[in-house]
């Protein structure tokens, strides 16, 4: 716009054409205030990282992963001795639970959906509202939440210390550190760092195997990064900007606003990864949609509740074929299936 105005001053004789240009640019700028125009995105921006991050005080080792896996699958970490991390984060269901929203302690239905834990190692913040800053912080949250596993750290530590198998496991994984809240958190986080979705058909395509995904899925990628502009939020190799957006689902859940009282955070939730998205129905933080088709329709409508809608979201005008292409693309993000062996828990 600035350049356009400068040019108009340089060529005063151009008259009507300049007026038309300014008018066009003004309209374009106003449109820009409502919706960012999508730009061509290089496939390279989606190449999967070949290193897995871990904090300096908790590098991943086989002993830590083995111990973390036992804790993850052990229902005795709950107050009822009946709910484990894996009850909701079920590896057979995309490390989620297949429910619209989670069921917690005492069969109570909770307000939010269980997010998958695939690729959470890459997250800037954890949970739908970003209330935890690391996997270590997150790991011991649900164990102690009354609505979820409803235990106390004292109770958990006392149970673990009573089982020789765990005493040995902690000694192998964290020699000299003992069984503490810190080592429980670090062990579970170490296991979670190994839950990675990769090797999807999309990854092969990004690396040059042109037939790894169908022509329809390739058109879907163009829509994803172009007309539909999904990439405004679902960006990078993990298909998330690590950001928080109100996508127009409505409801009374304040989301991120409860942690960050800034207006645009009201009703905003963390952008989830789209890795394995075809395996993790239902969708959205409140489980509003049963299928990916319904999700695509939601964005095509430009959301429903527009009271604090993210300005990136607007009606898309997708055709039936374009919606099918987008869906085909999303299914190419399912990673290679990894065999999960269940641990034998200490007694």
């Amino acid at each position: 716009m600035t350049n356009g105005i400068r040019r108009s001053k340089l060529h005063r004789g151009a008259g009507n054409r300049i007026v038309a240009l300014i008018a066009f640019l003004t309209v374009a700028a106003l449109h820009g205030a409502i919706a960012q125009s999508p730009q061509t995105i290089s496939k390279k921006k989606f190449q999967f990282p070949n290193q897995i991050p871990a904090p300096a005080n908790n590098p991943v080792t086989p002993a830590r992963v083995e111990l973390g896996k036992m804790l993850f699958f052990d229902p005795r970490l709950s107050g009822s001795n009946w709910i484990s991390c894996a009850t909701c984060h079920n590896p057979a269901m995309g490390w989620s639970d297949g429910l619209p929203t989670a069921i917690g302690n005492g069969m109570t239905t909770l307000k939010r959906a269980t997010p998958t834990i695939v690729n959470t190692v890459f997250n800037e913040l954890q949970m739908w509202d970003g209330r935890f800053h690391s996997l270590e912080e997150q790991a011991v949250g649900p164990m102690q939440a009354p609505g979820e596993m409803n235990s106390t750290m004292d109770d958990i530590l006392s149970k673990l210390k009573s089982m020789p198998g765990y005493v040995e496991g902690f000694d192998r994984a964290y020699p000299g550190e003992g069984i503490t809240k810190d080592t429980v958190a670090k062990a579970v986080a170490s296991f979670e760092r190994t839950i990675i979705s990769q090797g999807a058909p999309f990854d092969a395509w990004v690396h040059g195997k042109n037939r790894a995904i169908s022509p329809s899925a390739q058109r879907g990628f163009d829509l994803f990064t172009g007309k539909a502009n999904c990439v405004a939020c679902h960006s990078g190799p993990n298909f998330t900007d690590e950001g928080f957006h109100n996508i127009g689902l409505g409801g009374d859940d304040p989301g991120r606003f409860a942690k960050l009282p800034i207006k645009i955070s009201k009703g905003a939730f963390k952008t989830p990864t789209l890795r394995d998205v075809a395996l993790t129905a239902p969708y959205m933080h409140n489980g509003a949609y049963r299928t990916l088709e319904e999700v695509i329709d939601h964005y095509d409508r430009g959301g429903d509740d527009r009271s604090n809608l993210d300005p990136s979201i607007h009606p898309l005008g997708l055709s039936v074929l374009e919606k099918k292409d987008l869906l085909q693309f999303l299914t190419t993000l399912s990673g290679k299936q990894v065999a999960i062996s269940l641990p034998r828990l200490p007694q």
Binding site: E124, L125, G130, D241, E242, G243, F244, H245, R256, L260, I262, I264, S265, A268
Partner: peptide, 13 residues
């Protein structure tokens, strides 16, 4: 005068 922590509410990084 003083220290001001500036952030983006959309992108916490």
């Amino acid at each position: 005068a003083g220290k001001v922590e500036v952030e983006c509410a959309i992108h916490p990084q």
